[in-house]
């Protein structure tokens, strides 16, 4: 099941890339498409941040991941490289669990 999902997702992402370079420009030049498509990642990424920080299964929780996210936000504001942002969040959670 995992493989099927992985391969379908890969095929979908490639199909979207291929559509972009193949379809006549006017299809995707529509003002609604141009305006809406860049907004979708903003909503999805924000929803991913929220759900992966504040939930376990179907329960809303506040745990060490909240502190880790605050540390990550600080790193983002300091313009730290991607790997530093991610590693500092993981390290924060690991340290807080040790205490």
């Amino acid at each position: 099941m995992m493989w099927a999902g992985v391969l379908v997702a890969c095929a979908s992402c490639y199909a979207l890339k291929l559509a972009g370079v193949s379809l006549p420009a006017r299809v995707l030049a529509d003002a609604r498409v141009q305006r809406t498509v860049p907004l979708v990642p903003v909503g999805l990424l924000a929803a991913l941040v929220a759900t992966q920080t504040f939930s376990t299964g179907h329960h809303l929780v506040v745990d060490v991941r909240t502190t880790a996210l605050v540390v990550a936000l600080g790193m983002v504001l300091l313009r730290a490289p991607f790997l530093v942002v991610v590693a500092s969040a993981a390290a924060t959670a690991a340290l807080l669990r040790l205490l």
């Binding site: 992966q52 880790a68 996210l69 990550a72 936000l73 942002v85």
Partner: peptide, 9 residues
Amino acid sequence: AAPPAAFLA
């Protein structure tokens, strides 16, 4: 705690 930080970045 790593994935939310990745999505935030």
